[in-house]
Amino acid sequence: MNYTYIVQCRDGSLYTGWTNDLKKRIEAHNAGKGAKYTKSRRPVKLLYYEEFDSREEAMRREYEIKHMSRKKKEEVIQLGTGVF
């Protein structure tokens, strides 16, 4: 399974990424071994995720979400079926 996810950083900012192991990726973010963006904004909290069969689908959705406004991302989080 592949995932597109949104986390909230300590400073309140939102970060979107994709992975094939969601639990391990969140742990990596919180250990400072995830993305450069989240390294200085730890800890992160998982707010939302979507599951996909292929890596390409997850990456495509990550691209879509990263280009959304913060308001739209918040709507996705509120209306989605991910973690809250």
Score class of each variant (00 low, 15 high):
L46S: 05
A35C: 08
K45L: 10
K23A: 15
R55M: 14
T19P: 07
A31P: 05
E64S: 11
L47Y: 00
L14T: 05
L79M: 12
Q78L: 14
K45H: 13
F84C: 11
K71T: 02
H29A: 08
R55P: 00
G12T: 05
V83N: 07
T38V: 07
A28E: 02
K73W: 01
E64W: 12
Y63N: 12
V83F: 06
A58G: 10
V44L: 04
R42N: 08
M59H: 08
F52S: 09
E27Y: 13
R25L: 09
T81Y: 15
W18F: 13
R61E: 06
K36S: 15
N20L: 08
D21C: 08
A58K: 01
R41Q: 10
K72T: 00
T19A: 15
E50F: 01
G80C: 03
I77T: 04
I77H: 01
R61P: 02
A31Y: 06
G32H: 09
D53Y: 13
F52L: 10
Y37N: 15
G32A: 13
M1S: 14
A28P: 00
Q8T: 02
L46Y: 03
R42F: 06
E27R: 14
H29D: 01
A31N: 13
M59F: 13
E27W: 10
Q8K: 13
Y3C: 03
E62T: 00
V44E: 05
E27C: 15
R61A: 05
E56C: 14
N30A: 08
W18L: 07
E57N: 12
T4Q: 10
Y49K: 00
R55H: 13
T81K: 13
K71C: 01
E74K: 07
K23E: 11
Y63Q: 10
G32Q: 05
I6K: 06
T19L: 10
A58R: 06
D53L: 15
E51N: 14
F52N: 07
A31E: 09
A31L: 13
L14S: 08
M1N: 14
L79I: 05
G32P: 03
L47Q: 06
D21A: 09
A28Y: 04
R42T: 08
K71V: 05
V7I: 14
Y15H: 14
K23I: 09
E75I: 04
T16C: 12
G17S: 11
T16P: 04
C9I: 01
